[in-house]
Amino acid sequence: MEEIVLETQNLTVYYNGRPAIEGISLRIPRRRITAIIGPSGCGKSTLLRCFNRMNDLIPSARVTGRVLFEGVDLYGPDVDVVEVRRRIGMVFQKPNPFPKSIYENVAFGPRIQGIRDRRKLDEIVERCLRAAALWDEVKDKLHQNALTLSGGQQQRLCIARALATEPEVLLMDEPASALDPIATMKIEDLMRELAREYTIVIVTHNMQQAARVSDYTAFMLAGEDRVGRLIEFGPTQQIFTRPRDRRTEDYITGRFG
């Protein structure tokens, strides 16, 4: 049996009082890649953003149910949201490096936690850029503006930046959807590499990508009421070859979405 890192229990998210996702119960195993798939508007990103409480930034959002991170309810009263986001990193759909140097992008997380020592920062920057398979490409231009990098490099920089706060979980919201096929391949290889140490949850609407990289797959779907629900969750192999639910089969065989 896998060790569970993140678990949602009957999770419902409301925007302006209307549910966007409803009754989601899901268990995410440690050091595995879990893909959340489903057609547009089914609430994949909303679910992902519950894991690091990014939904807090949307004033009209309200969350019921529980999200357990190593057994602790992330929405509990004593939880420090800043600490949650440090331990659960996030990579966004569109690469969003800060308009600063490559070095400063990676050093930002450690810096705001109060790490000032230059040697320590140097060490973190190098380690994270290596982990994100970007070091060899940028080691001679660490102090160049990050926006001079290509889209794929920028996205790997964002991954390096997320790793610098030493998270246990990496949330990735369609991290390759804005990239070309070669850059996408690099990101996927990198994810397999990172899964040795980190738990990864990836939202993707690219089923081939989910099938290629993930160990577990969750399929979500919004019904007529436009409320997203979890239809099926299981090992990726099983979801793609022997889905239990008819709707899952329809989706993965390309009959809709």
Binding site: N52, M54, L57, V82, E83, V84, R85, R86, G89, M90, F92, K94, N96, P97, F98, P99, F108, G109, I112, Q113, C158, R161, A162, A164, T165
Partner: peptide
């Protein structure tokens, strides 16, 4: 200042003031 930069900083565990001070204000 693009919202995506605020999100990026928040997601790294920055407090609201740190986001403003280090990312939003300089831009």
């Amino acid at each position: 200042v693009p919202m995506s930069l605020r999100e990026a900083a928040f997601a790294l565990g920055a407090t609201r003031w740190q986001v403003i001070r280090h990312q939003v204000l300089p831009l």
